[in-house]
Amino acid sequence: MTDITLVRQHESQISEADKDAARRVIFGIIDGLGERGKRQWRRLWNSILRLEPGEMLALQTHLARSGPFHRRHFALEQALFDAQERFEVFEQYLYWIKVGAGWVTWAAGPSGGVVPIPKSISYAAADENEFREFHLQVIQFLRGPHAARYLWPHLKEGADAMMNSVLEGFNE
């Protein structure tokens, strides 16, 4: 889910003619689904156009995920899991990837220190934009200086080549 905060920038007035033109363009291209959706869509834009200078409006959006991209990402994770030598349990491997990619919430640990808690990448928790950001962070982590050497400890110099061979199979 993406949070967007809008703020009215300055005092200038929008003429009624400009508001009408904006509405014609906005509602002519995109509209709410069904009567209820149409009413909600118009209410949203009317609220935006009535904002006073400095007034803010917060929106939450949820962009449906791309099925092919989602499946490719998980196929990449599975291929890497199958090729690596460190983890026997897939769930632990996924936690390691999330922590390495920084896809975490930091919280107080049981002894008072700070610990990473991996965030969810479920459809409800991460829309298309967030999932793509997660994917980029994962690739950056996997291409970084530590992941390959950790997943293939016996390869020493060949670990990076092994990582490259898996990632390049997915054009990453």
Rank of each mutant, 00 (worst) to 15 (best):
E128L: 06
Y150F: 08
L142N: 04
R143P: 00
H135K: 12
L142G: 06
F134D: 04
P145Q: 03
I139R: 10
K156T: 02
A147E: 05
R143W: 06
Y150A: 10
F141M: 15
K156I: 07
F141W: 15
E128R: 09
N129W: 09
E157G: 13
G158D: 14
R143F: 01
F131C: 03
A148M: 05
P145C: 00
H135M: 03
R149M: 05
A147M: 03
Y150C: 03
F141I: 08
L151H: 04
F131G: 00
N129D: 11
V138R: 13
A148N: 05
A148C: 11
A147H: 02
F141K: 10
R149C: 03
N129F: 11
H154T: 15
V138H: 09
Q137Y: 10
R132W: 01
P153I: 01
F134K: 11
P145Y: 01
P145D: 03
F141S: 13
W152I: 10
K156L: 12
R149K: 11
E130V: 10
F131M: 09
A148T: 06
E157Q: 11
E133K: 14
L155T: 06
P153G: 02
G158V: 01
P153E: 04
F141T: 08
H154M: 13
P153N: 07
Y150W: 05
Q137V: 00
